[in-house]
């Protein structure tokens, strides 16, 4: 009974927040709307990373690689070859997923620190390509002038409000997809691997394959956020695929709470808001963000979502991840 009620609560909250996000477009000025768009885009990135970090127990330092591959594909196809919207989206989606599928072969057998290091190294390869393959990527100059998508006469994405709705629609779809993915038997098996891979193996699961698919799916969703990013900013450069970009996504997940889908989305919102809001008041905004990280890690090691907001139990996995830290996955 309690579970059913909790599910109902969650569903209500999800619908409520979605409605608020739709209404936001009518209330907010274009600047705040563009920040909110940014929050949604990075929310997708953070949620996709959470599939790996929070649910499969594989902390990745190279998640922006797929984000970057997708963004660069959109940029190159649209500015150099004049490919239309669907062509760009399809190409970027396929290519980023393909890169994830290839990288996955190299990383899926590792875990813990080794996983961290290999994903880091692979993302540096992507960065190196972005920086050095000047003929294709324009190197450090980046590629500018990516046109906003145009879906026929009626819906011009050049308009910030329309583009926001577009991103919001993608966001809601991605949220639901990831939610369903994680609730599926397959998603449950990922949690099993996080808790004890050897036990899962004994139960007859091919854990390598499950980890591999988890990596590819996470990369695929990361690619989707990369596509949106390229259209949002109209510009891509190697700094989009730097270590710091991966690290930022990592921190969004940690801040919000790994192993909760809402947490990373919230973490993305908080970090982007602070970056854009605080920096107007002080040059020392990095200190504020740093302090928040430290406080979070000291007092809320499972992220903001571990705060038990009255009546809302998002943190069902809290006890599980507690076991995880004490059980030792290394």
């Amino acid at each position: 009974m309690a579970r059913a009620a909790n599910f109902k609560n969650k569903a209500l909250l999800f619908i409520g927040v979605s409605v608020l996000l739709v209404l936001a477009a009518q209330v907010l000025s274009t600047y705040w709307l563009s920040i909110l768009t940014l929050v949604l885009i990075f929310g997708i990135l953070a949620m996709s990373l959470d599939i790996l970090m929070g649910y499969t127990g594989l902390p990745s330092f190279g998640h922006s690689a797929f984000f970057g591959v997708a963004a660069y594909t959109v940029a190159i196809l649209s500015t150099r070859y004049g490919v239309g919207f669907w062509g760009c989206v399809g190409g970027a989606f396929l290519l980023s997923t393909a890169v994830a599928a290839i990288f996955g072969l190299l990383v899926a057998h590792t875990k813990g620190v080794y996983f961290l290091m290999i994903t880091l190294a692979l993302s540096m390869v992507v960065w190196g390509l972005a920086f050095r393959w000047v003929g294709m990527t324009s190197g450090d100059n980046g590629i500018s002038g990516i046109p906003r998508p145009d879906l026929g006469e009626a819906v011009s994405m050049g308009d910030d409000v329309n583009f926001y709705y577009f991103v919001l629609a993608v966001y809601i779809a991605v949220f639901l997809l990831i939610y369903l993915f994680l609730r599926s038997p397959f998603g449950q098996s990922l949690k099993g691997i996080r808790e004890s891979e050897s036990r899962m193996k004994n139960l007859g699961y091919n854990t390598w394959l499950h980890k591999y698919l988890s990596y590819v799916v996470a990369g695929m969703f990361s690619g989707i956020s990369g596509i949106l990013w390229a259209y949002y900013n109209g510009f891509v450069s190697p700094s989009d695929v730097e270590i710091t970009a991966s690290f930022e996504a990592f921190l969004m997940v940690i801040l919000g709470g790994p192993g909760t889908l809402v947490g990373p989305a919230l973490g993305a919102g908080i970090i982007i808001f602070l970056q854009n809001f605080l920096s107007a008041f002080t040059e020392r905004w990095l200190i504020v963000i740093g302090t928040i990280y430290i406080l979070t890690i000291l007092y809320l090691p499972h992220g903001i979502m571990a705060l038990n907001i009255r009546g809302l139990k998002f943190n069902k996995t809290k006890t599980l991840s507690n076991d995880q830290t004490s059980g030792g996955t290394s």
Binding site: F235, S239, N276
Partner: peptide, 16 residues
């Protein structure tokens, strides 16, 4: 010193 951040900040200066 990041172009993407510069773009976001310039948006803020112009639009907000």
């Amino acid at each position: 010193a990041k172009p993407a951040v510069a773009l976001t900040k310039v948006r803020k200066l112009v639009e907000k």
